[in-house]
Simulated scan of single mutants.
Amino acid sequence: MESLFLNPQHSNAGLPDVSPLIGKMEMAGNQIRFGILGCAEIARKVSRAISLSPNATLFAIGSRSIDKAKRYAAENSFPETVKVYGSYEAVLDDPSVDAVYLPLPTSMHVPWAVLAAEKKKHVLLEKPTALHVSLLDRILQACESNGVQFMDGTMWMHNPRTHKMREMLSNPSLFGELKAVHSIFGFCANSDFLENDIRVKPDLDGLGALGDAGWYCIRSILWAANYELPKTVTALQGPVFNKAGVVLSCGASLLWEDGKSATFQCSFLMNLTMDLTVIGTKGTLHLNDFIIPFNETSAGFSLASESGFTELVTGWVPLPSNHVVTTDLPQEAFMVKEFASLVGNIRDSASKPDAKWPTISRKTQLVLDTVKASIDQGCVSIDIVS
């Protein structure tokens, strides 16, 4: 599930007022109509993103009980026009729903994502996408055979900062050739989380910190490498498990045939950290909030290009340049906007689903699975088999 750190009282204090936008959405007739399966905490964030996106509208919410669905809708100030259902099936059976967002536990992804695809609903699926790539393949096959768009919920991928960083990494005079990537995502979970959160339950999200936090690290590494799969993966020594055998902290190193390398660490047991460093032959890119920016309307990074020491080795020259990208929407709204645009092209222009996003999801899942296999086998090196 997407990590979310909000006020435990579910206050919307400090967030933009979206009610005018919601009204605008209700009056328009060409938005993609979203249904949400489940009342997860992260769905609060994505439902807001749907309301903020200019080409999407929140149409329905479903839970396993009508009372829970009604309570969730009321607590989150959903418009009265949003349909409230007492089952997931009812959302999928609604002919007016174009697409569904699934924030369900990972162990529930296959049956509900496959059924959604069979009902011709486009699928925005929370990460990690599955417990194993073979299970993700069942979802992707169902989406492909039913002509529906698939995308996972890795929000930072859609931030305009990410596109700006890609421009710089693709500039050979600024960055050169990729040599190494280092990625860290961790947060210090409290005792209640470590005992009761679905991300520490083997029957719900059995991949633990690797699936939740490690997904982002692996995705950032693949992103930096233009989605070229590494040749080998080796889990770092000393993974930490809870009493049920779920990973609470781990890491891995990745190696490519051309010699570039990467490492990552992910944990539920460290101070909140979201660092990404991408190193080339000419440049080094740094950012400290790559998953959730410090500010949702602006995001920064630094790039040091052809840096060296001053004459007496007392400093750097030239100094790294700092870059800030401002946005009019939070990154999760950009995600919804892009997904809805792809869905709209399929619905209104008979376009085919974009294969980019399922391909990226599958590569991320494949590397994650290989890290898990290395952990299970005593942190041995394992070749990636696609």
Results as ranks from 00 to 15, higher is better:
173 S>F: 09
150 F>P: 01
139 I>W: 04
123 V>R: 01
125 L>E: 05
154 T>C: 14
170 S>D: 14
116 A>V: 05
170 S>Y: 05
108 M>Q: 15
154 T>L: 15
152 D>V: 01
166 R>D: 05
160 P>A: 06
169 L>K: 01
113 A>N: 05
119 K>I: 07
177 E>Q: 14
125 L>V: 06
146 N>G: 08
112 W>P: 09
125 L>C: 07
111 P>N: 02
126 E>L: 06
159 N>R: 12
109 H>E: 08
151 M>T: 05
170 S>F: 04
171 N>L: 13
126 E>C: 14
113 A>F: 04
146 N>D: 09
151 M>S: 10
127 K>Y: 03
174 L>T: 03
121 K>E: 05
112 W>I: 09
163 H>S: 13
150 F>Y: 08
165 M>H: 03
156 W>H: 06
108 M>G: 09
136 L>I: 09
118 E>R: 14
150 F>G: 00
115 L>R: 15
119 K>T: 07
137 D>A: 15
163 H>R: 14
106 T>E: 14
134 S>I: 12
176 G>M: 10
128 P>L: 12
166 R>V: 02
166 R>L: 09
150 F>C: 01
168 M>P: 00
153 G>I: 00
163 H>F: 12
156 W>M: 02
172 P>D: 04
137 D>Q: 14
135 L>S: 10
175 F>W: 04
172 P>K: 02
137 D>K: 15
148 V>C: 03
135 L>Q: 13
112 W>R: 10
134 S>F: 11
145 S>R: 14
144 E>N: 09
165 M>D: 00
142 A>W: 08
172 P>M: 05
109 H>T: 06
151 M>W: 04
135 L>R: 11
167 E>N: 06
175 F>A: 01
114 V>Q: 05
121 K>P: 04
141 Q>G: 14
177 E>M: 13
114 V>G: 04
106 T>H: 08
142 A>N: 10
134 S>T: 15
149 Q>F: 07
134 S>C: 11
107 S>C: 12
163 H>L: 12
170 S>W: 07
164 K>C: 05
148 V>H: 01
169 L>F: 02
137 D>I: 08
166 R>W: 06
165 M>Y: 01
147 G>D: 12
148 V>D: 00
168 M>N: 00
149 Q>A: 08
171 N>C: 15
174 L>Q: 06
154 T>M: 15
176 G>P: 11
143 C>I: 00
160 P>I: 04
129 T>H: 08
164 K>I: 01
106 T>R: 08
119 K>M: 10
155 M>V: 15
112 W>L: 15
128 P>V: 11
164 K>A: 11
123 V>D: 01
153 G>K: 05
140 L>W: 01
127 K>L: 03
156 W>F: 09
113 A>W: 03
153 G>H: 05
126 E>D: 14
116 A>W: 05
171 N>E: 13
133 V>C: 13
168 M>L: 06
174 L>K: 08
166 R>H: 07
164 K>Q: 10
171 N>P: 13
173 S>W: 08
147 G>L: 11
162 T>G: 04
147 G>H: 12
171 N>I: 11
169 L>V: 01
161 R>D: 03
139 I>D: 03
131 L>P: 02
168 M>C: 02
126 E>P: 03
148 V>T: 02
161 R>L: 07
110 V>N: 07
118 E>D: 11
117 A>P: 11
141 Q>W: 09
164 K>R: 12
128 P>A: 12
165 M>K: 00
